[in-house]
Design a protein around this nucleic acid. Structure first.
Lengths: 248, 248
DNA sequence: TCATGTGAACCAATTCACAGCA
DNA sequence: TGCTGTGAATTGGTTCACATGA
């Protein structure tokens, strides 16, 4: 606790974790991943410079991000890794285990179900659903695939708020409507379509073709010094003069 | 500062497609998807209002985005769908077919290989690679999985610039180094680690756990009216007062 | 009389630069 | 002597509002 107001980029702001800018929230998981790795490697202290380098951001950005969670660093020294892991994790809501359902157990759904087994702390897949009777009953990652129309019961039973959609494009909107009707308030979709959700429902979309298109644009930009049609590349070399790549 | 009234959002800018802001580029694939769908449905003309609604953005944003590609609309009428598809596609570099390799043919790699069969125009998967001898030789989505150490030959042969990494976290950095050494200049990684690439190499990262963490944060924010520990939700209801959900 | 295209105003986020404290 | 934490400056992007032109 510090100043009574002093609110630079704040939103409504009511408790300690309010007023954290969206851009910061999007980076916190990255910091947490790096910090967790350091902790496991026995590192106890880290400077903003060091952590920023490993996270692929500027040190000023990192310090400002962390300052939104509170003052957990020590001037002249740096940050205590364990303390930061603690606070970043808590801010992200990873102290609890958020139950999640995956809808659509095709090859992508399979991959996500297995993937989630070891990767994300803070969430736990509690049910797999699919509309295809051929898939229902199959056992994937330790869970039995349930019929899609059970979504209401599953959501109510486990108190699920977050759904992952791994269904084909044509089925995505109706699947989305179904989970929303069942009470889901956050949707992560992997389908290559624009979904419409009612106000109050959070939607994030991840799409392979979009990601590839963005990369293709940048490739084209680097390959086109004014020409319309870049020649098909054959021999390549690293280290072009372009800006450093950075994930986001 | 209001003194230098230079160009609006421009970058270095040399040819027609320069100076397109990153935020705009990230939205172009969305517009293209919506427009393609309209075209297939026989729609010939669309207003900025309409297209913006379907793409989930504001109409002013849409018009400004399109204005960066040139003036392809008709005042008082709207945009010709076919013309827009043409120009947006060209701007994104989708006039060519960019060859792509997928490294790591586990369950996620499988899914991506199959997925890419129908989804993304503008890219074509030309090779699948894996370090595991048990997987090499298998046939996935019409392609034989090749040993990972063939990456150099494959990249040279097809002129590949873009690689998709679907390998486990522990193998990601070395796989990334390998493809970069082979001549790849754009990397799309699905591994939950921060990768380091040399300057000049574009890197984008997609991570399930990060996406889920962001959603969990927002759930926690909406569930916490001041408390530190939100109670495990059981009964739910739709239509919270929060802001409209939107993908980004 | 429409809807586009675009200056201008606004807002969010990054970066700078330094005060403050171990 | 460091390195954090943070106002101030800057950059990038969104929104507004209207002049422009079919």
């Amino acid at each position: 606790m510090t100043t009574p107001h002093a609110a630079p980029p704040l939103r409504p702001q009511r408790d300690g974790t309010r007023g954290v800018p969206d851009a910061t929230v999007a980076r916190l998981p990255v910091y947490l991943r790096v910090l967790t790795g350091m902790g496991e490697r026995g590192v106890t202290t880290v400077s903003s410079e060091e952590l920023a380098l490993l996270a692929g951001v500027g040190s000023a950005t990192l310090r400002k991000d962390l300052s939104h969670l509170g003052s957990y660093g020590v001037r002249g020294v740096g940050y205590d890794v364990a303390t930061l892991v603690q606070h970043v994790g808590r801010c992200l809501g990873l102290a609890e285990e958020w139950p999640v359902v995956i809808v659509g157990i095709g090859s992508l759904g399979h991959a996500l179900a297995n993937f989630s087994g070891f990767a994300p702390r803070g969430t736990r897949v509690v049910a797999l659903l699919d509309a295809d009777p051929a898939v229902v009953g199959e056992r994937v990652a330790g869970l039995e695939v349930l019929p899609a129309d059970r979504v209401g019961a599953v959501v109510a039973e486990h108190g699920v708020r977050i759904a992952v959609l791994a269904v084909p494009a044509r089925a995505a909107q109706s699947a989305c409507d179904a989970v929303v009707a069942a009470g889901i308030t956050s949707v992560l979709s992997f389908a290559p379509v624009e979904l419409r959700v009612p106000a109050g429902v959070e939607l994030r979309s991840v799409d392979l073709s979009t990601e590839l298109a963005i990369l293709a644009f940048r490739e084209r930009r680097r390959a086109a010094p004014g020409a319309e049609e870049p020649p098909a590349p054959l021999a390549l070399q690293v280290a072009a003069p372009g800006r450093a790549g950075a994930s986001r």
